[in-house]
């Protein structure tokens, strides 16, 4: 891949500073600062609805922030031209929560898709590459299936094979473990670790599956209320005993992160119904 101006191993690959983003009246992010170092697995944790998916879309340049900057490899994502942004995206793989496979193409064609779009390789070269990528996720035998014939876990692995087809420098996983049985979770955990180490990738992992994250992440950010509330290595987090983290890691229903969506008092709500 091309040499970047800031290709310094010490520099973080992604640097987010003072990010503010809002949906309607609600600020999803309100002054978010995150550094994602090169070459490791960085996990971003937070309860559902805190904007984890939104954050990945902001990093990928699909959404634009209201304030603050996101730099990837030293370049401000939202100051890039369209071609610049597309060139950057070729070096980013993203695994969507749903897999986002193209439903009218077979598994093989899905994985071949980015290669056919962005390279001028011959069909036989593409075939070799696709089979290698599928082998890496253990689905070489499923190449002729259609996406509708895959289980959720398999679909995610195919999407993973597609995300690494162009050998990106960074890959973003959106809740890869959600809704998976323990075995596929284990398979995915192993895959993510292997890919990260074998290809010298930088992985960004968004999830709320505490056990898996603590197992593979090198660095963890916990976000809530639009800010980072805690960060560090998994062991640091487990030892810090911060109130937020304890709630999250031990799955307590109420604590600093409220179980309830903001609402008036229950009694008031009920009484109001009676009055009317």
């Amino acid at each position: 891949m091309e040499q970047s101006p800031a290709d310094n191993r010490e520099e973080p690959l992604v640097r987010i500073r003072g990010l503010r983003f809002r949906r309607g009246e609600r600020w999803i992010f309100d002054g978010l600062d995150i550094d994602i170092p090169r070459g490791g697995i960085t996990a971003i944790m937070g309860p559902s609805g805190t904007g984890k998916t939104t954050l990945l879309k902001l990093i990928g340049g699909q959404l634009a922030p209201d304030d603050g900057t996101i730099e990837v490899d030293g370049r401000d994502v939202h100051a890039l031209s369209t071609t610049g942004l597309y060139r950057l995206r070729m070096r980013m793989g993203m695994l969507f929560q749903s897999g986002a496979l193209l439903t009218d193409l077979s598994v093989f064609d899905n994985v071949a898709f980015p290669l056919r779009e962005h390279t001028r390789l011959t069909e036989s070269m593409i075939r070799k590459l696709v089979l290698l990528k599928l082998e890496a996720v253990g689905l070489r035998g499923a190449r002729d299936l259609m996406p509708a014939e895959l289980s959720g876990g398999m679909a995610r692995r195919v999407a993973l094979a597609r995300a690494i087809a162009l050998d990106p420098t960074m890959i973003m996983y959106d809740e890869p473990f959600a809704g998976q049985d323990p075995i596929s979770k284990g398979v995915l955990v192993q895959l993510i670790r292997q890919l990260n180490d074998a290809a010298d990738l930088t992985s960004v992992l968004v999830s709320h599956d505490v056990a898996e994250i603590l197992q593979i992440a090198d660095r963890v950010y916990v976000i809530s209320g639009g800010r980072v509330i805690e960060s560090g290595s998994p062991t640091e987090l487990a030892e810090s005993g911060g109130e937020w983290t304890r709630q999250f890691i031990h799955g307590l229903p109420d604590g600093p992160v409220p179980f309830h969506y903001p609402a008036p008092l229950l009694a008031d709500d009920l009484l109001q119904g009676a009055v009317c």
Partner: peptide, 9 residues
């Protein structure tokens, strides 16, 4: 799928 395409440049 459309978002996915965008992210695949």
């Amino acid at each position: 799928q459309l978002s996915g395409l965008e992210m695949m440049a």
